[in-house]
Design a protein around this nucleic acid. Structure first.
Length: 789
DNA sequence: ATGATGCGAATTTTT
DNA sequence: TTCGCATCAT
């Protein structure tokens, strides 16, 4: 992204709307009736309910083209908002493709955040900022909060900064400035949440910085308090479009409503069934309420699916039907039924991974009686990232190439953040957070004490830390080895800063000079860790990435908002990712492992959010199934190692919600398949125990009462579960409430054998034979007496 | 000031 | 089990 000035919309656009007006509109002929309706209805509020794989992006981009072609709007008068940079890029490319020319003139197509940065730079003073404010990422945010917490003399172990950051983010998502935090939230963070929130905002202003949440919140506040500014944009943005509307939070919603308030030419696109970000502030309510918010809104449903087979769509529909309060949508296809969704149970997680590995190989060879699939046409979608390990382990041993999508982002990596902190200090020497990060990286012998000294001097003189450091060295307050190193660093920063203004040095050369002279590169070269070479690689890549920018400053701006990880290397690999990361993607073959109650749906989600949480999990299941084009394979394991302990698992309640006529139950060798829950031969947990476990779970998931659940409950008694094959020490309790008795002999992974001498809720006091008496959580011990089967 | 040891916690993630 | 962080020992 280029700097604000270059992208100023108010200087007009390169595309001539009028010139296009006379052209025919062949693009309309490629749309189906629903899409066409959504595209042609340009004025007034429109809600486009676009199911998975129904050509949403096509409709959206065509609508932009249509607005331009009919001369309704010039490119710079259309505001189109997305959530991710990827989506924005994709839209730009497609619009450009359809127009047959670059879209230089679409300056207001971007993410909520990037658009807000542009607006806020323009009106920074209204938020008490200078227009060159810096954008803090999560890491900076937490470090800053930590400082505030520690300064207030609070034990940040008991009251972690991370927790406070979460609370503040939540408030910002709900568009609450410190003065507007409701009384009901006053107990947050040990009753001091609001206080710290206000403190944090003040500190940010002092630093001339904002966090991600502020970008939205500041603009909402400015629009609310400065009607003249708002009106200006209401006039400029004659047409507004929003992608993934079901993911908007309150702040984004208000922002949109303010901007669309005058003309109401707003087209929101989304799918309530794919709302899976409630936990980070998204409000499904926004999309459900659309017709109330915008009376007379036109609602268009895109229901013809171009992605999946009939069986897959029907299976997904069967699951999502269990949710209440949907806007309602049923996907259909004229592409045929295809193969049924496949369901298979496994003994344990390792076997599941093994089986999927073999299945992938046979699909790759085409042994399954159909066209061979490339590895990049297959994906494994898991609920939680820790599930990935089993697959990685397995695939490494059999040498199956795989790629994990959505790991730590490139710019979040340690070495990249360090390098960027160096750049930041050089570009703006008053960036204290960046200086703190690099002052002792690489190790310069500047520990807590030295850094304290720098802080004090800087504060006393009212200067940035770099300047404080310089003073500390000059006045001899930091001497010796550390002092020398610090002097070098300070002088380096000054020198690099001068080089930045030097026309003879390119910013890429400068970046290399900074990393070399600071000793940062050397630090990794000397590091013996096996991942150090990779880090050096990343640094090289970082410098390479600078190429497309005019200077370091522009690059930093870009990186704070953009820069994704998905450098797709050309090699064919199986993708492994979370269900969340899979939204918007599609694959011919999809594996959905780990469909077990507690894992998926996640116990935590249900505990924390009850029915709401369960429904979001169900939407996640829906998203998962609808990623598949041809083959969708769902699986579960009867036993799983959790935190080093074996646990018995019950098949997910979602499995019971799959319509039987669209499912094929596979019977793997060695397992007897009867009904959905393929059970282990011989043994298995006694019916009584199964039922008691279920009862506890029902009690926990308070309020859960779906028919599928009842069916499973009824069936569970007959089903029987498998037992771990390796350990004879069966874990008999899966829940918080312990079922141990005093005097019982137990085994603990770390402490060995012992006898229970006390029970307090889920905590046990155990007298271990070797380790002495300890208090332990019931989860971590297992009964040694074999469970009577 | 820095490396070693130990304890507690462990969905989901974009910007 | 593994990770991150904090305290401890050098």
């Amino acid at each position: 992204m280029s700097s604000f000035d270059e992208m100023d919309a108010f200087e007009g656009a390169s595309l001539s709307a009028r010139a296009m007006q006379a052209r025919p509109m062949p693009y309309l002929d490629t749309l189906n009736p629903a899409q066409r309706e959504a595209v042609e209805c340009l004025d007034g509020p429109v809600l486009m309910l676009a199911g998975a794989g129904t050509g949403k992006t096509k409709a959206l981009t065509t609508r932009i083209v249509h607005l331009l072609s009919t001369g309704r709007a010039r490119p710079n008068e259309i505001l189109s908002v997305t959530f991710t940079n990827k989506a924005a890029r994709e839209m730009k490319e497609r619009v450009a493709g359809m127009l047959g020319q670059a879209v230089e003139g679409m300056p207001w197509l971007g993410t909520f955040h990037s658009i807000c940065v542009k607006l806020l730079r323009r009106h920074a003073e209204l938020a008490g900022l200078k227009s060159n404010f810096t954008i803090l990422d999560t890491d900076d945010q937490i470090r800053l909060l930590k400082q505030l917490i520690q300064a207030a003399g609070i034990d940040d172990k008991r009251w972690p900064a991370r927790m406070l950051a979460g609370i503040i983010d939540d408030w910002k998502n709900r568009a609450l400035t410190p003065d507007k935090v409701p009384a009901g939230d006053a107990s947050a963070y040990n009753n001091r949440g609001t206080e710290f929130y206000a403190l944090y905002q003040t500190r940010l202003r002092e630093l001339n910085a904002v966090d991600f949440g502020d970008l939205l919140l500041h603009m909402v506040t400015i629009f609310q308090n400065h009607p003249d500014v708002l009106e200006q944009y209401q006039r400029w943005f004659r047409y507004i479009m929003v992608d993934e509307y079901q993911d908007t939070n309150v702040a984004q919603y208000l922002w949109l409503r303010l901007l669309a308030g005058k003309h109401k030419n707003v087209c929101c696109v989304g799918d309530d069934d794919q709302s899976i970000y409630g936990w980070r502030g998204a409000e499904v309510g926004n999309i459900l309420r659309f017709e109330k918010d915008f009376p007379g809104a036109m609602v268009v449903r895109l229901e013809q699916n171009y992605r999946s087979t009939g069986h897959i769509l029907a299976a997904a529909a069967g699951v999502i039907r269990g949710n209440q309060g949907r806007l309602g949508k049923e996907l259909w296809t004229d592409a045929g039924d295809g193969e049924k969704v496949r369901l298979i149970g496994h003994w344990d997680g390792e076997e599941e991974a093994r089986w999927i590995g073999e299945e992938i190989e046979s699909m790759q060879r085409g042994t399954r009686g159909q066209a061979p699939l490339g590895l990049d046409q297959m994906a494994i979608l898991v609920r939680a990232s820790h599930q990935m390990r089993a697959f990685e382990d397995r695939f490494l041993t059999i040498g199956l190439p795989y790629r994990v999508i959505g790991g730590p982002r490139f710019y979040e990596r340690l070495e990249i953040r360090d390098a960027m902190a160096y750049f930041r200090v050089v570009v703006s020497p008053d960036d204290d957070l960046a200086f703190e990060r690099i002052v002792n990286t690489p190790k310069r012998g500047l520990g807590d004490k030295a850094q304290q000294t720098i802080q004090t001097i800087a504060r006393e003189n009212g200067v940035p830390l770099v300047e404080g450091a310089r003073l500390a060295v000059e006045s001899g307050q930091i001497k010796g080895k550390g002092g020398g190193a610090l002097r070098q660093l300070v002088e380096g920063i000054a020198r690099w800063g001068r080089l930045a203004g030097d026309a003879d040095t390119t910013h890429m050369e400068l970046a290399e000079i900074i990393l070399d002279e600071s000793g940062y590169t050397t630090m990794w070269q000397n590091d013996k860790n096996p991942d150090s070479p990779g880090r050096l690689e990343n640094l090289k890549e970082l410098v390479k990435a600078l190429e497309s920018f005019e200077n370091l400053q522009g690059f930093l701006e870009h990186v704070s908002l953009v820069m994704d990880n998905d450098k797709q290397d050309a090699d064919e690999k199986v993708s492994i990712m979370t269900l969340h990361a899979a939204k918007g993607l599609e694959f011919p073959a999809v594996f959905l492992p780990g469909w077990e109650d507690g894992l998926f749906p996640s116990q935590r989600s249900m505990d924390e959010s009850g029915l709401k949480g369960l429904e979001e999990e169900r939407r996640l299941a829906y998203v998962g199934i609808t990623r598949a084009e041809q083959i969708c394979t769902i699986s579960f394991a009867g036993n799983r190692r959790v935190f080093g302990q074996w646990q018995s698992q019950l098949p997910s309640r979602f499995i019971d919600e799959l319509p039987e006529e669209h499912v094929e139950v596979l019977t793997p060798p060695g397992l007897y398949g009867g009904g959905y829950g393929a059970a282990a031969p011989g043994g298995g947990m006694g019916a009584e125990q199964v039922r008691s476990t279920i009862d506890e779970k029902v009690a926990q998931a308070d309020g859960y009462n779906s028919p599928g659940w009842k069916r499973m409950q009824a069936r569970a008694g007959q089903r029987g579960l498998s037992q771990p094959k390796e350990s004879k020490h069966q874990v008999i309790d899966l829940t918080a409430t312990s079922s141990f008795t005093l005097g019982e002999r137990v085994f603990h992974q770390k402490f060995g054998y012992g006898a229970i001498t006390g029970i307090e809720g889920d905590k046990l006091e155990v007298e271990f034979e070797k380790a002495g008496t300890k208090k332990v959580v019931a989860r971590f011990v297992s009964a040694t007496d074999d469970v009577p089967f």
